[in-house]
Structure formats: C-alpha cells, structure tokens
C-alpha cells in the first residue's frame, strides 16, 4: 500500500510538473520579462521553503527532539530570532528584490506599440508602428517581433479584463476608460497563448488569443500584408460565401477592409483566415471550425453577442466558412 501511495505521489508530481511546461506557462519563459518573473518565483519559493523549514524545524526541535525545559535565554532567542528577526529580514530582502525588478516590466518600447482593447470576450487589436498616423487594425491575435521591446497600451470596453501572455511576461489589468501599459520582449520565436486573467463574465475562460513571436523581417512582412485590404478569395464556394456574408448582414458588425463591410461591433475579419484561431482562441482557424462557429456561437461561447446562424444550411455554412478561411 505504502509503495502504491509513493508511486501515486510520484506520478502526481510528474503530472503537475508537466503542467509547468508548455506555451501558456510562466515557468517556461519565451522572453526576458517572463524569465525575470520565473527567477522571481523560484527565489520566492526558495525563501518560503527556507522559512518553513526553519520555523517547523524549531517547532519540531522544541516539541519532539528536546522537549525538556530549556534556558530562558535560549527560548527567547528562538522565539525572537525565529519568529521575528529571521522572517522580517528574509521577507524584507525578498520584497526589496521584487520591487527593484518591478520597473523593468514597464520599460518604454523600442518603437512598436500595440493597443489592445478588451471586449466581452475578445480582443480589439491595433498595431501602431513608430510614427504611424493610423493603426493596422486586427483582432484576437498578437504578433510581435523577436528581440524588440513592444509596448502594450491596454484598456477595456465595459468590465475589467486582464492581459496576460504567461510565457512572455507579467499580467496587466485592462480598465474601461483608463489606459494601462506593459511592455514585453520576446526572445524565442514561437507561438504562445494569452488568456484573460480577470473574471469578466460567463465566457471569461474562452477569452484567449494566440501570441506569435516572429523574426523581425518576417514580422515586418506580415504587418505590411496585414495593413492591406482583403483579397477576395477565389473559387465557387468562397465566392458564394462572400455573397452570403452580405446577404446575412454580417457586415453590420464585422469589417472587412476592401469590401463595403465596415461594422465595428465585432472583430475585424479582414485577414481572419490568416489567424491561428477564431472566436478569440476558441477554435483553430479551419474551414470546419468557421462553419461550427457561425452556426453554434452560443454553445461555443455562452453569452456571446453574435447570434448563432443555425438557420443556414450546411452548404451555406460551408460556403461562408470557405470565404472566411480564404481571407488570409
């Protein structure tokens, strides 16, 4: 039994350690800020363990090892030293170090600023390269160049959200009517996952996004393409999908640059087919997922403002999906 228990504990430990890896983990950093926070976490944990061992070691000593009466001076020393002096110095040192690295997370950006506006439950994204007069508008995905410090100007529509890409840095709350700032520097190219980290309503858990750290040249090329208008996808289904998009009134809420659709209620769809996810991290951006999303929004994302277009036939949904997936 004992062996089984130990094996279970080891398996549980291995499983929980496995949970520390991955693309949404503060403990597998992809950038300088996350690395600093990771170190901070381990040092804080070390300090806490040290304090725990010292305190409980003393408890153990006086209650089990040497339970007899001890000289007053020694007893006072243990209570005052272990109970007041040691924790005060240790916590003071940890606090001082933590505070000293706090400003690093708010350093000014190297030129590119990304404005992110939290909605229920998705992200309005605007890229403002240095000196830009107008932003490149996108949604539900963050791309950033590796090796550059990128500034994020954050605010929110109706409720408080929190912007967090654990693998790249610390979280920052997003408030309606008040702009907050955080800067991130990705060091390793990769695809990370961001997640709203402040409860913001029934689909809070589905408010996520993909964060793609790219080599600077690739990022510049991507941003140029993203700034352009949508190229109308070719093919019978996609062309029928474009007509359905207009007929169903999708453009009342969604904008597609280069078409007459300029709605601002929902996410900009100009290059939605080029994104890695749809529905703010809800589904992979495949044609099948587009069709599922359009016809089942309310079950995929409870409370979402977009109605389910479940009156569409499978063929119509597939055509619409082909059009949207083609908007790369």
């Amino acid at each position: 039994m004992r062996l089984t228990g130990a094996a279970t504990a080891a398996a549980a430990a291995a499983l929980s350690l496995a949970g520390c890896a991955g693309r949404q983990s503060a403990l597998s950093p992809g950038g300088a800020d996350a690395a600093a926070l990771g170190t901070l976490f381990w040092v804080m944990l070390g300090g806490a363990v040290l304090l725990w061992l010292a305190m409980n070691g003393m408890f153990f000593y006086v209650t089990r090892v040497n339970a007899s009466a001890m000289p007053r001076r020694l007893a006072n020393g243990m209570v005052i030293g272990g109970g007041i002096v040691l924790p005060t110095i240790l916590l003071g040192a940890l606090l001082g170090w933590g505070l000293s690295i706090l400003p690093d997370q708010r350093q000014p950006d190297d030129g590119l600023t990304i404005r992110v506006h939290g909605e229920q439950w998705w992200w309005r994204v605007e890229y403002w390269p240095e000196g830009a007069a107008a932003p490149v508008v996108s949604a539900n995905e963050i791309r950033l160049p590796v090796g550059e410090r990128v500034g994020f100007r954050l605010d929110s529509d109706q409720v408080i959200h929190s912007f967090w890409i654990p693998s790249l840095g610390g979280k920052m709350d997003m408030f309606p009517g008040r702009e907050t700032y955080v800067s991130l520097e990705a060091e390793a190219p990769g695809v990370y996952r961001g997640q709203c980290a402040e409860f913001c309503g029934e689909s809070h858990a589905w408010m996520a996004f993909e964060a793609v750290a790219m080599p600077p040249d690739a990022f510049d090329a991507w941003l140029d393409a993203e700034a352009g208008a949508a190229a109308a996808p070719e093919g019978g289904a996609a062309e029928r999908g474009a007509a359905l998009f207009a007929r169903e009134g999708c453009g009342a809420c969604h904008a597609i640059r280069g078409t007459g659709h300029v709605g601002q209620v929902g996410p900009d769809l100009t290059h939605v087919g080029g994104r890695r996810s749809i529905g703010a991290g809800r589904l992979a951006a495949t044609p099948e997922a587009f069709a599922a999303w359009i016809t089942h929004t309310d079950s995929l994302k409870p409370g979402v403002r977009m109605p389910s277009y479940d009156h569409l036939s499978d063929a119509d949904a597939a055509a619409l999906a082909a059009y949207l997936a083609g908007l790369t």
């Binding site: 005060t88 003071g92 606090l95 505070l99 400003p103 708010r106």
Partner: peptide
C-alpha cells in the same frame, strides 16, 4: 514598525507611476 518599513520600501525602490 516592520509594517511602516515595508510600506516605505516602494517609495525608495519604485520610481514613477507605472
């Protein structure tokens, strides 16, 4: 006393409003 010391530390270590 310890509380006042800890409250004072951000004054010395965190500059600015961010």
């Amino acid at each position: 006393f310890i509380g006042v010391v800890y409250v004072t530390m951000p004054l010395l270590l965190v500059e600015g409003c961010r």
